[in-house]
Every structure is written in structure tokens, then in C-alpha cells.
Simulated scan of single mutants.
Amino acid sequence: MTLSTTDGKGRLNAWPYWMTLTFVPLVVLAVLFGGWTILLIPIYGWVLMPLLDAVVGKDLRNPDPETPDAELFWFRLLTCIWFPVQFALVFGTLYYLTRVGQYSTLETLGIMFGIGVTTGTVGIVYAHELFHKSNRVERGLGDLLMALVLYGHFRTEHLLVHHPYVGTPRDTVTARYNEGFHRAYARILLTGFGSAWRAEKAMLVRRKRSPWHLSNPIWKYLGLQSVFLAIAFGIGGWVGVGLFVFQAFVAIWQLELTNYVEHYGLTRKHLGDGKYEPVRPHHSWDSAHRVSGLLLINLQRHADHHVHPMRRFPLLQVYDESEVPMLPTGYPPMTALAMIPPLWRRVFNPRVRAWRKKFYPEIEDWSAYKNGTLPKPKGAG
């Protein structure tokens, strides 16, 4: 077996992406045995994957983007089965920790940290794939996965704000040049829900409805989250709720680290009068590293995702380095680097400045872009 995503006849091969299911036995080991086995989950995602990336290298092949859904059954099945798997992992772990296991507080938090790594690395990435689709079942599964990490509004924020307004002052998650991750994270946590509410409100107003109308999906997000919090309480009382919230926080932290890396310092050109250029491939940091691409179902092919947001993950394309800014590694090492802002700026600020000279040599004063003082796009909610 190889890690190739095509078989000998050039057909797409789904099985390498199923490697994400290896998180399941790692979680089970940590829950049943505690101790050093708790470290296996973060080591697997943050150490082993980057090492394999270094050994295996990049995957620069591009599949046929017109491949019909009928040929993608096993790819779609992988994302669709993850909700019941994650549900069992989260609440099964809560049950064991609060009713069966006799672990120390540190071990308990360590196990739930591992759960958060799993729900963030796999669950949120799969939710992202699912809620980008028009199929109601897939979107519903995406909502359920986001509710399991108490971040349901991310779907609205991502689809109605991030994609239309990435690289502009309206987008909450586009990290500004020189903005450290911790500052960006606090800003996103404080403003993200309000941003999603405003976006849904604007849509409802256009349909002549109140933002308090039941068709506002925010109520669905909050309802699902309340159900899962109630289940956590039913299993382990307030301790169960606290542990559930803790894993959600870890997952959200990972999500926003990824968002930070994907667009740091990259801005769309302001054309005047609140108008911005269209989204182009060079407005995202890209990566073609093979193993982390399998783990994250090609999320790292982010430039193509923004150009073709409905395209399914196995069909996402890699752009030439002359067309897009490239990350030096896959996502895991980059998110670790982002946790240390001085080192991050040392590595990435020169890259952003080079990107500016390459794609926008006509812009001499970047201060308004850097400070986020340009006007918001016309019509932005």
C-alpha cells in the first residue's frame, strides 16, 4: 500500500484519507489506560504527521475537477460517518471519566485535551467540508459536528462572511499583518458570534423577516448546543459540562489557529468606494504536503477552496508557486509556530512583504491595509 490518492489506472483512491480514523483507537487507549498513552493523540497529529510530511514530500498532482459525485462515494462516506463516531468518542469518554475511571485531575484534563485535538483536527475540518455542500443531509451533519464543539455560528460566519469578504476589514478571521495569534484569537472570540448574527440579520431583512424569526439558523445552532450540553450534564453533572466545554475550547483554538495561518497578512486590493477586487488564488496561503493533506482532507489546498468553495475535497487543485503564496510546511508546524508571535513574524512578515511586491507593486502605502482602517465592503452585513 502507498499513500497515493490515485490507483494504478489513475482513478481516485479514497482509502488514504481514512487514516483519520486512526484517532479512534488512540482515544480509546488514552481513556482506558491513561498515563503516557494520553500523549499519543497530540504526538500523532503534531509530531508524526509533520515528520511523515518531511519524508513523503508533496503531492502536486491535480485530479479531474469534473469528476462526478457518483465516483466519490467513499470520500463522501468518510465525512458522513464521522458525526456518530465523534458523538460516541466525546460522550463515551465523558461517561468513563465521570463514572468509571479513577484518574487524577491532570490525567482527566489531558484526556479531554486529546478529545479536543480530535474534534478540532478531524471534526471541524469534516464539518467544514459538509456545510459547504448544498445537500441538506451533509449540511445537517456539519451543524451537528459544530454543535459538538459549541461553535455552531461558525457555519454562518464562514459561509456568509469569510468567503465573500476574506481579505477585507469585514472578515473577522483574516489576520492582519503583524497581528499576533493571541490577539487575533481574542478578537475573533469576542466578535465572531455578533458578526454571524449581523450576517443572518441582513439576509432575513432582505426577505422582510425579523432576525428573531425561527428561520434564523442561529436558533438551530444554539438549540443543538443546548442538547449536547444537557447530555453532558446528564452523564457527569457539572463536571461533565465542564469537561465538555474544555474539549470544545481546545477544538475552537485549533480551528482559529488554522484560520490564522490560512490568510495571515493577505488582503484584497481596495478599488475605492467600498469596492474590493474579487477573491483570487493568491489570497490564501497554500500547501501541497501529502500526509497532512490526507489528515486534513486537502484543507491545505486552500487557494482552490476559495476559488471553488463547493468543490469536494478530493478534487481540490494545487496551484503553481508562481500563482499563490506557499507555506514552508503543512499546517501542523505552522500552527505551532503561530503560538509564538515573535517567531511567526520573523518567518512570515518578510514573506508577506514579498507577496505585496509580487502581486501589488503599484501599492506603495500599506498602512490602511495593515491597520484595518479601509472601509468595509459595500453591502456587507
Score class of each variant (00 low, 15 high):
2 T>I: 12
4 S>P: 01
7 D>S: 10
7 D>C: 12
8 G>R: 14
8 G>L: 13
15 W>Q: 03
16 P>N: 06
21 L>Y: 10
23 F>A: 15
23 F>C: 15
27 V>N: 12
29 L>F: 14
30 A>R: 08
38 I>N: 04
38 I>M: 08
50 P>F: 01
50 P>T: 02
51 L>P: 01
52 L>A: 13
52 L>Q: 09
54 A>G: 11
54 A>F: 15
55 V>N: 10
61 R>H: 13
63 P>K: 02
67 T>Y: 09
69 D>G: 15
69 D>L: 14
71 E>V: 11
75 F>N: 10
76 R>M: 14
76 R>A: 12
81 I>G: 08
84 P>V: 02
93 T>D: 07
98 T>Y: 02
99 R>Q: 14
104 S>V: 07
112 M>C: 08
113 F>W: 13
116 G>Y: 03
119 T>M: 09
119 T>Q: 09
121 T>G: 11
126 Y>N: 15
126 Y>I: 14
128 H>D: 00
130 L>Q: 03
133 K>S: 03
133 K>G: 03
134 S>Y: 10
139 R>D: 07
141 L>H: 07
145 L>S: 06
146 M>F: 07
147 A>P: 05
151 Y>V: 01
152 G>C: 10
153 H>S: 12
156 T>G: 09
158 H>G: 02
166 V>K: 04
167 G>C: 02
168 T>P: 04
169 P>H: 14
171 D>N: 04
172 T>L: 14
173 V>H: 11
177 Y>T: 09
183 R>C: 12
186 A>M: 15
188 I>E: 11
190 L>Q: 14
191 T>P: 00
192 G>W: 01
193 F>I: 08
196 A>T: 01
196 A>G: 04
203 M>A: 15
207 R>L: 13
207 R>F: 10
209 R>T: 13
211 P>G: 09
212 W>R: 12
213 H>V: 11
214 L>T: 15
218 I>K: 10
221 Y>W: 08
225 Q>R: 05
228 F>C: 02
230 A>T: 15
243 L>D: 06
245 V>M: 13
253 W>L: 13
261 V>G: 09
261 V>E: 01
264 Y>M: 06
267 T>D: 11
268 R>Y: 03
268 R>N: 05
271 L>C: 05
282 H>A: 03
291 V>L: 12
291 V>M: 08
292 S>I: 05
293 G>A: 05
297 I>F: 13
298 N>H: 03
299 L>K: 01
303 A>I: 00
311 R>E: 01
312 R>C: 12
319 Y>K: 02
321 E>H: 13
323 E>S: 07
332 P>C: 05
334 M>P: 03
338 A>T: 10
340 I>Q: 07
343 L>P: 09
343 L>T: 10
344 W>T: 07
349 N>M: 06
352 V>P: 01
354 A>W: 09
363 I>D: 00
363 I>S: 02
363 I>Y: 00
375 P>Q: 05
378 K>I: 14
